[in-house]
Design a protein around this nucleic acid. Structure first.
Length: 168
DNA sequence: CACACGATTGTCT
DNA sequence: GACAATCGTGTGT
């Protein structure tokens, strides 16, 4: 069993030029337009995989990219999948996290609420969350829809110099 | 069928 | 800080 705690995520909306759902539904992003609570997996740069949680109702195309997590359980297995050791880096970045959990496009569409391969569990909310611009985009580069636990050493980037606290 | 490109990462300077 | 790796997907012809 592998377990990790989400410390960083980014939101993507259908009217958002940076979102895969922006151009409309296609074969690749079909899961984004399906029911919420499913896992949307896509391949990035031909090399890595990235995990998203579908958040919108059927037909909308909203999702949250899972960018980084604090490994909690099964660290040796994660390290074996990644071919490295060092707990800080196991799930630091969307590609690394997917690799640590051996997630690829074969798991696209998995039910994260009732599934038995990969799922979400309720957890406590971080005491302080910062909102920042999203990472690695060429469009909508200033939209502050990256959310990161303040001060987490497992996030993919250091905290912003002038942090903007975010409250749900 | 040809082409451009990307929600990344690791390596090298 | 710069750059290559690598390929599925979307678009246009």
């Amino acid at each position: 069993m592998l377990r990790a705690r989400i410390v960083e995520a980014e939101a993507y909306e259908p009217d958002d030029p940076a979102s895969h759902s922006f151009p409309g539904q296609t074969a690749r992003n079909a899961t984004m337009f399906g029911p919420p609570g499913r896992l949307y997996v896509y391949r990035s740069y031909g090399v890595h995989h990235c995990m998203n949680v579908v958040t919108g109702p059927v037909g909308r195309g909203s999702a949250v990219l899972l960018r980084a997590a604090e490994p909690l359980e099964g660290l040796e297995e994660m390290a074996a999948f990644r071919g490295t050791n060092g707990s800080r880096d196991l799930c630091r970045g969307p590609g690394r996290w997917s690799q640590a959990f051996a997630v690829d496009t074969s798991l696209d569409g998995e039910d994260l609420i009732r599934g038995d391969k990969v799922w979400l569990e309720a957890g406590g909310r971080p005491a302080l969350i910062y909102a920042t611009p999203r990472v690695g985009l060429t469009r909508a580069v200033d939209v502050p829809w990256r959310f990161v636990e303040a001060g987490s050493r497992f996030s993919s980037r250091s905290d912003p110099r002038a942090p903007t606290p975010w409250r749900p």
